[in-house]
Structures are given as structure tokens and as C-alpha cells.
Design a protein around this nucleic acid. Structure first.
Length: 419
DNA sequence: TCTGGGGTCCTAGGACCC
DNA sequence: TCTGGGGTCCTAGGACCC
């Protein structure tokens, strides 16, 4: 085996992590330039149940940040402008970003709606050194979207990711190969992807606060205390992708492993009609997405959250995988009635499907005339919804009508037709 | 301050099988 | 008659990410 003493960046793996700055807020500013520079909160009305999806930098100065309850954000910053999210807009701009990236290099992986990894190894002849390449890419993104982004550059995906975070807002940062550990050492362990509130606390209790502290402990010790997470942390403290999610090839895209929808009521309820209408609607939404992906699920899971926030999940695996609204609903309904503490007020309901069958719905459906007819009916319904919107067709319509008359409210709070 | 919604991955116990 | 061991599936819960 040959060991190279000196490896220049020309021969090293080079990754970009590109992250859009305050993405949702910035897109909203494009649609309403009057929002620019002001404290803006995306996620809903200040008195609604819900959390902040994104906050402008002006709002962040008041302590507002994403995942914070909207009511809290309102208290911290009463003058903030609260706007509803528009996922279609963000999706549209995410596609624009993706297009620019794909025109830049073929090895692109969107990690979420507003961030991506690029493998730019070997592009120096085309774009020059990494910093130049990054600035070129930054210009292209800016030209195509009028949005700001930040780019981290490193020899590992992990360090590139941490790097883009440090570069924000609207910056580019390169960690020179070999300097990873030195770059990471002064950062809080919380900056490591995969270390959240709980792990941070556990690490702190051992006196580990900075990545540099972490780097002093050996693998065996960390594994003993933190299991697989500890093993991963040992590598991450050195800036290595080795093992785990970061260790995958860029661009190896796979389908979803699960599909779910859930709904938090604007007011907790024990009304069976409302509960069942909601479960029906959620089942339909899940079924629809299963069919869009051509998938059938073996495992159906109910999520149930009570007023006191206690939450249970109850799953059942069926003999015959399904993507049919009616079958999903019947499973969910049964799970609900088997597990609901009768009379208890419910805060949230969720429907979750997973465990795809290899041999798709087709084989299962062919030997069953009823299923085939259902599938045709659902395909027609999906088509109607495409043309006329979600409210056009609904198996839950009869359940829902009753509730709607009484409360003038959409039972699942979907972005329905505004008056 | 009163806590969304859509995901992924990990842990852990029990059933079941060889 | 004092109790193996590994593999896999199912289920429940929880940490974490955006």
C-alpha cells in the first residue's frame, strides 16, 4: 500500500455544502419586497398553535429562531410581521437552485429543500481552485434566484456542512485539507450534525464542551458511553465522514422509506365525528402519495397525542400491502379505537405508512376484482384533485360535512379555499 | 413560552425460526 | 431436570434534522 506524505488539494476529494440563507423568508421577500430588512416570521399567525419555520435576521436579533412556538416569537418581537408559509414557492425556488447546481457539476445531492452537497473533485481545470469555483457558483445562484447562499468547502462532507454554517450569512469558507481538526477544535460540540440538545447535555456532563475536548477521548471510551453515536463522534471530531450517513456517495438518490401526514387540532377534541373525519382525510393524503410513488405499504401506524402532550404510536403490519384509502383508513380506525382512552381530548393525529413491498400493488390487485375497481376509482379521484384541487373529491366528504357545518373550519386545517 | 410537520436512524425487547 | 446462540421481523419510543 502506498502512503502519500503530501497530497495537494488538486488530488484531494473536494466537497461543497451549499445552504440557502434564511430561505423561506428570503423567498417571501421576493414576492413582497416591503418585507426586506424587517423582522419577519414565516410559519403562521402569532396566536396560532405552531412553530416558527424561518425567521429573518432582523427577527433573530430579538431571539426569535426556527422551531420556536409562534406565540413565544410574538412575545419576543411583537412588531414582527408574521406570514404563512408557501411551500409551493419554496419548492419552485429549490428546483431553480437544483438546476443551477446540476449545470455546475453532475455530482449533486439535495439534502433538504434549501441545502445541497456537491462533489467538485477534479473540476479545477474548469473552475480553478475551490474558492474561485465557490464564488462562481455563488454568482450563478444569485443570478438565477436573487437569493443569497453560503458555501462550505472541505475534503469531507461533514466539515463542508459545518463550514457553510460558519460562513453564514452570504459567505464562503474553505477549510484547507489537513486543518480540519484545528478548525473544529474551538467549536461547541452542538455544531456537529447529529449532536442535539440531549447529546450535548450528556457530553457536557462529562466535561466535553468543545469538539477539541471530544477529540482527546479515544473511540473505545466514547463507544462505551454513547454507543454507536460515540463511535461516530470519535470520527467526526477529526472531521471524517467515515461511517454513517456522511459516508455515502453523492447523488445516490433513493425513494422515501416512509410516508406520513399528521395534524394538530387548533383546539383539542374528543368528538368522534371530527376525529374520524380527520383520520379519513389523513389516510387519503397518505394513500394518494403512496400511489404517486407507485408504492404499497405493509405497516400502517397511528400517532395519537393527548392534551397533556403524551404521545403514543401504534403500528400494525398487514398481510397484503396496500395503497388504498379505504384500507388505510380501516386499519387506522381500528388502531385508534383499540388505543384511545375513551373521552380523552386529542391534540394530534397522524397516519404513517412504511415497509414497501417489493412485488408492487399490481400483482396483489390483479387477483382481486374489487381492488382493481378501487384502484381505477382512486386514479380517477387523484386526477380530479389534480384538476380541481384537494377539496374536489373525498372519501371523507360525508364524515367531514357534518363537522364543517358546525364549526366553519376545515377539519384538518389544510390550506383550503380562502374567503 | 406551551410546544408543526415531514422525514431518517438507533435502541431494545419479544416472537419466532433454525 | 434449570435453560445456546444467531438471525430476522415486529413494535414502541426517542433523538435528531430541516
Amino acid at each position: 500500500m502506498q502512503v502519500r506524505q503530501r497530497v495537494s488539494w488538486l488530488e484531494m476529494k473536494t466537497f461543497f455544502h451549499l445552504d440557502m440563507d434564511a430561505f423561506f423568508v428570503s423567498v417571501e421577500e421576493l414576492f413582497d419586497p416591503a418585507l426586506k430588512g424587517k423582522p419577519v416570521v414565516v410559519g403562521g399567525r402569532p396566536n396560532e398553535r405552531g412553530v416558527v419555520s424561518a425567521a429573518s435576521y432582523a427577527a433573530r436579533r430579538f431571539g426569535v429562531h426556527s422551531a420556536m412556538p409562534l406565540r413565544t416569537a410574538h412575545k419576543l418581537c411583537p412588531q414582527a410581521i408574521f406570514v404563512d408559509g408557501h411551500m409551493e414557492r419554496y419548492q419552485e425556488y429549490s428546483h431553480k437552485v437544483h438546476d443551477v447546481l446540476c449545470g455546475f457539476t453532475p455530482l449533486v445531492e439535495m439534502a433538504s429543500i434549501d441545502e445541497a452537497y456537491l462533489d467538485i473533485t477534479g473540476t479545477q481545470r474548469l473552475y480553478g481552485p475551490p474558492l474561485r469555483a465557490a464564488h462562481l457558483l455563488h454568482e450563478r445562484i444569485s443570478a438565477a434566484t436573487k437569493l443569497n447562499c453560503s458555501i462550505g468547502i472541505a475534503a469531507s462532507r461533514l466539515v463542508a456542512k459545518i463550514c457553510s454554517d460558519q460562513a453564514k450569512p452570504n459567505g464562503v469558507l474553505w477549510v484547507i485539507p489537513g486543518r480540519e481538526a484545528a478548525f473544529l477544535a474551538p467549536l461547541d460540540v452542538r455544531r456537529i450534525p447529529g449532536v442535539g440538545k440531549v447529546s450535548e447535555k450528556n457530553l457536557n456532563s462529562l466535561g466535553i464542551r468543545k469538539v477539541g475536548d471530544l477529540a482527546k477521548f479515544d473511540e473505545a471510551f466514547l463507544e462505551q458511553h454513547f454507543g454507536k453515536l460515540g463511535l461516530a463522534l470519535a470520527g467526526k471530531a477529526q472531521g471524517l465522514d467515515a461511517g454513517g450517513w456522511f459516508d455515502t456517495e453523492i447523488g445516490a438518490e433513493e425513494g422515501p422509506k416512509s410516508i406520513s401526514h399528521e395534524h394538530t387540532f387548533s383546539e383539542d377534541t374528543a368528538d368522534l365525528a371530527q376525529i374520524e373525519a380527520t383520520l379519513a382525510k389523513l389516510s387519503e393524503m397518505v394513500g394518494r402519495r403512496l400511489r404517486e410513488h407507485g408504492l404499497s405499504a405493509r405497516t400502517i401506524q397511528l400517532k395519537l397525542r393527548y392534551t397533556d402532550f403524551s404521545t403514543i404510536t401504534r403500528a400494525h403490519s398487514v398481510a397484503r400491502p396496500t395503497s388504498l384509502d379505504t384500507e388505510l383508513f380501516e386499519e387506522i380506525r381500528a388502531l385508534f379505537h383499540r388505543n384511545w382512552k375513551k373521552g380523552s381530548t386529542v391534540r394530534l393525529l397522524g397516519v404513517h405508512a412504511s415497509g414497501w413491498s417489493e412485488e408492487q400493488a399490481q400483482l396483489d390487485l390483479l387477483d382481486d376484482h374489487t381492488h382493481e375497481r378501487w384502484q381505477r376509482a382512486l386514479a380517477a379521484a387523484d386526477h380530479m384533485r389534480d384538476r380541481f384541487g384537494e377539496s374536489a373529491v373525498s372519501l371523507a366528504a360525508s364524515l367531514r360535512g357534518k363537522f364543517r357545518e358546525r364549526t366553519h373550519e376545515n377539519p384538518v386545517g389544510l390550506p383550503g379555499k380562502k374567503k
